[in-house]
Nucleic acid binder design. Structure first.
Lengths: 187, 187
DNA sequence: CAAGAATAGTGATATATATCACAGGTTTAC
DNA sequence: GTAAACCTGTGATATATATCACTATTCTTG
């Protein structure tokens, strides 16, 4: 039942059954339907989400109502509006399901509890955070150094499955390019 | 003497004298002259650096020999090629002094030691990493949603001191815009 | 199942930005 | 102290990309 979460954590820190039970007691689970929001801009961000199955997008909507996708959250990913989560502020972004999704949910209180009472989990989160930071820096570099076509090809290479699962309009808003330009790149 | 580092850490976790002494024993200090490299692409990245004074830039050089500045590291910042540091790989970027700088240096071994033996420091690094991640996401959002002029103005607002300390050519490579375009923005 | 919404391609045009080139001023380093 | 390197502004032009508009197709949802 909970094997996915366990093996996800155990990729970084090994656990006894008892330890995993303790960890699990800090999570709840939730199910979201396609096109439904996990949270919307302006709402309180109660949880950080670990995606067991499905696909979601973290979206920022600008003043002109244009959507910008900050990240796709797929199976085995952690996602939230982390600024709002850690600072207990209202969301500036929205988290929306592209596909029907199942997640584990971790409140900030539970997160802090886990960190304090179980150094292994603090190590785990530290490693995850470092990886997230490094990944974001790579994305910045990609935005600074490459044009639309190169970015599209990088994405194809890095996440080939995304192209089947996500509309091109949405890929465009992730890449920072208009859907028309993206469409013309490979025509 | 070491007050800066101590108060930097104590902004997040309080320390006894003994604890700080223990922490300090993991660091070395270094001095770098203006325009000198802390490390260059291709070299091993031995340390993560805490900047006591001065100003540095983390630079990626592309195939056409164009410089792209990933970040400016100013007083009170941590900087490194973190991918190379954590994975013990050769640097893909270079860290270069814009001004004469003083740093504390933390080897990966010392970092891991600190994390294992002092939960406070693991908490400290976790918080720093989370902040770094959130900051990078903000930068991505800025690159996705704004044009050169808006990005320049955001930067002016966020780090007014930078504009005095850094050449416009360099600001341009940070903003992802040509120096000519940047020059024309405010003429 | 049907209506409305979302998606995808593509033409025509506008716009932001890059690139190349040059000149004058400033800084750096041996 | 001087040559070389760097910095800045600006004109002329090229290029990538955005925007607007229209059509056809495919999904979604009540």
């Amino acid at each position: 039942m909970h094997e996915k979460l366990r093996s996800h954590i155990e990729k970084i820190v090994p656990l006894t059954d008892k330890e995993f039970e303790f960890i699990l007691s800090h999570f709840t689970t939730m199910h979201f339907k396609k096109n439904h929001f996990v949270f919307e801009r302006g709402e309180k961000v109660e949880y950080a989400y670990y995606v067991v199955s499905g696909l979601l997008k973290l979206v920022y909507t600008d003043d002109l109502a244009n959507e910008h996708i900050l990240s796709f959250a797929m199976e085995d990913w952690w996602e939230s509006d982390f600024y709002a989560y850690f600072n207990q502020k209202k969301a500036t972004m929205s988290l929306k399901c592209i596909e029907e999704s199942n997640t584990y949910c971790l409140s900030l209180e539970s997160y802090q509890n886990l960190c304090i009472n179980m150094q292994k989990m603090e190590s785990f989160f530290l490693q995850k955070s470092n990886l997230g930071f490094i990944g974001s820096q790579q994305r910045i570099l990609s935005l600074l150094t490459t044009n639309s076509k190169e970015r599209y090809e990088q994405l194809l290479k890095q996440y080939p499955s995304l192209i089947q699962r996500v509309s091109k309009t949405q890929l465009a808003t992730y890449l920072g390019v208009s859907r028309e330009t993206l469409s013309r790149l490979y025509s």
